[in-house]
């Protein structure tokens, strides 16, 4: 780990002014916020992230950053809420099960106690070539250096949203539900406050896989707003190599509003298979306003993966992805709410 200065501001404004910095993208800036540290310290130890100043926001005691509230606009979640506290939230489990389940099915209780939902959406890929600096080829870590995963061990990598420069999968779970429910990210920066639609937070790798989000250096995520009515008919299905404590090989965050057999509204977020939290818009479009039969779901799920670009070891995701969507939607349809 490289040397760094450690600051613990007492107020949000102080934190934002301390984090003011230049850099190619939010995650590469020399000043980083420290939430739970479960991504940041891990990658600093591996020398993948090299900030020179940490601004510890984890103890900021500001209502803007904490807790869950509801008003006419919808649901608001403070960015410093821990994953564990939200996973144990009974209101979320009842009214937004997809959100609660995505946290409960992630990481371990120790990590959930530490990690905050703001840092969660900014977690970095688990691509082994990204995490190990002894590999010289990684466009995400060293722009222009190549991609060792392309013809390497790429079983865990993405099949959707990939580019010739990077096929790293977005590893998290919580982001899929936010993407599916059209959440809005509230951001505070040196220039003031702004809102970012969740679907615009993560950038596809394209030519610049090292720039992962649309956040500017020093911008602070203060919270997430899920607009509109609750989504009691929603759930998160996560398929992984072991029963607990593993990242997703494929996951589906689904939410439905049904009238009889017809899916009046349908939302599908995908994890484990794509470079960003993936909104399955093709499949949604084929199913919205139609009777939700197994055959229709299967066809739509497969159509979503028609654009998949698998590599040698991750071909199974082209079959696992649609199967995960299908199971999740059938289970959501059968939910008693």
């Amino acid at each position: 780990m490289r040397p760094f200065t450690y600051e613990r501001p007492k107020a949000i404004a102080e934190a934002v002014s301390m984090a003011r910095s230049e850099g190619a993208g939010h995650v590469n800036a020399p000043v980083q916020y420290l939430g739970g540290g479960t991504t940041l310290l891990d990658l600093m130890k591996l020398d993948v992230m090299q900030p020179t100043r940490l601004v510890d926001i984890s103890r900021l005691d500001d209502r803007l950053l904490r807790g869950v509230s509801r008003n006419r606009e919808g649901l608001r979640i403070g960015a410093l809420s821990s994953m564990a506290e939200l996973a144990d939230n009974g209101m979320l489990a009842r009214d937004y099960p997809v959100l609660q389940q995505s946290l409960w099915l992630a990481a371990s209780q120790q990590l959930r106690n530490m990690a905050r939902v703001g840092g969660n959406v900014l977690q970095r890929t688990r691509c082994p070539y990204f995490r190990d600096t002894s590999y010289s080829e990684c466009n995400k870590r060293i722009p222009g250096s190549g991609c060792a995963a392309m013809d390497g061990v790429n079983r865990l990598h993405a099949v959707l949203g990939v580019s010739d420069k990077c096929i790293a999968a977005y590893p998290g779970d919580w982001a899929q539900g936010l993407a599916a429910l059209d959440a809005v990210v509230e951001v505070l920066g040196p220039g003031g406050a702004r809102s970012v639609p969740f679907g615009e937070l993560h950038r596809p790798p394209g030519e610049t896989p090292h720039i992962e989000t649309s956040l500017q250096p020093g911008e602070l995520i203060t919270g997430f707003v899920v607009p509109g009515e609750p989504w009691p008919r929603s759930l998160y299905r996560k398929v992984r190599d072991r029963e607990s404590y593993a990242f997703a090989n494929a996951s589906a965050a689904v939410a439905l509003r049904m009238r009889g057999d017809v899916a009046e509204d349908i939302r599908i977020g995908l994890g484990g298979v794509a470079t960003t939290p993936w909104r399955a818009r093709t499949a949604e479009g084929m199913l919205r306003g139609k009777p939700l039969t197994e055959a229709a779901i299967r066809a739509a799920a497969e159509a979503e993966f028609a654009q998949a670009r698998p590599r040698e070891h991750n071909r199974f995701k082209v079959a696992l992805g649609p199967a995960t969507i299908t199971r999740a939607l059938l289970e959501a349809k059968a939910m008693e709410v």
């Binding site: 450690y6 420290l34 739970g36 940490l54 510890d56 984890s58 990590l111 530490m114």
Partner: peptide
């Protein structure tokens, strides 16, 4: 009172 991983926690935290 909460369980955490001390390897990913700075002493300063």
């Amino acid at each position: 009172g909460e369980r955490v991983l001390s390897c990913l926690t700075l002493a300063a935290q």
